[in-house]
Design a protein around this nucleic acid. Sequence first.
DNA 1: CTAAACGTTCCGCTCGGCTGGAATGGCAAG
DNA 2: CTTGCCATTCCAGCCGAGCGGAACGTTTAG
Lengths: 163, 163
Amino acid sequence: MADRALLIGELAAALGLNPKTIRYYEAVGLLPEPRRTAAGYRLYGPADLDRLRFIGKAKAIGLSLEEIGDILRLRRGGQAPCEHVLALVGRKLEAVDRQLRTLTEFRQELVALRRQAARTMSAGTADACVCGIIEQHEPQRGAAPLPVARHKRSTQQRRFAPG
Amino acid sequence: MADRALLIGELAAALGLNPKTIRYYEAVGLLPEPRRTAAGYRLYGPADLDRLRFIGKAKAIGLSLEEIGDILRLRRGGQAPCEHVLALVGRKLEAVDRQLRTLTEFRQELVALRRQAARTMSAGTADACVCGIIEQHEPQRGAAPLPVARHKRSTQQRRFAPG
DNA sequence: CTAAACGTTCCGCTCGGCTGGAATGGCAAG
DNA sequence: CTTGCCATTCCAGCCGAGCGGAACGTTTAG
């Protein structure tokens, strides 16, 4: 029967999250306070799954948790959403559209680059590599960092000895 | 003739950066150690301007400083640049494709959200704007550039009292 | 000569977004 | 009953990308 209610660990596992992350989202207001068992264990349902998935997407396009919160409150806020939040969504839409365009262009350039690189490498002159691609991209603020392959390693070695 | 060499403050000003940021970039290896005056002041030339502009663009398309560093080192690193960069580009390409899909989905959701919001508003309760975040909206000084309102304020209200 | 306005290093802080750990409690199986 | 894993809270720290300030040196204008 208890097919519906998940403990925090199960919910986390279902989405590949750390349970801590879920509590954190609750603490900063991205998730409503959940039901609890008699013992105080958090209980989650499908709505929470949805919500977390939404959050995931929003994060993936570079919204901050705060902005995501604004949007979520709009989504769930039964009353009239205030102008402000509506404006936020509007701006986000624009931003997303800009980013879609930029990303599409960028993709083209990556593909071209890869093709060219392959040729260059087999041709011997491995020189004018990557940098053309990036060089013609205007800095477009508000277009978000792609949260890509954040591989963890790499002890940044700042605090080096100067020469 | 001394048109070419800039002090750190001038360089920073020319690019709208904080001098500290430039030193920081140097510290983490994005900029080479610059020439110095007898007194130890850093001296920069057009190459540094270029490099910083490059960094700016790369950031704008979502690369981390670390990744930018990789590319930069390979660019200047003499021979056989590409294998490594090629891998980087490959990963970026995948990332961009994922990103494009996510963005497209997300756009749909935003549109839906806005439509729903519009309906709610015209449905009568258009009066009570209960959303609470209005009051912390600062009267925009100066025409902000495009950036999508990263508003900083937001009194951290975590550490709330539980129900 | 002095004061302002730079520069230098180093140290520490912020801020967002987690993540770990300690101390404690719940519950089911052996 | 004990073992073991889950949960709870709270406090603490890390990472990335910087910024602010102290303490000190340099350059230049009046």
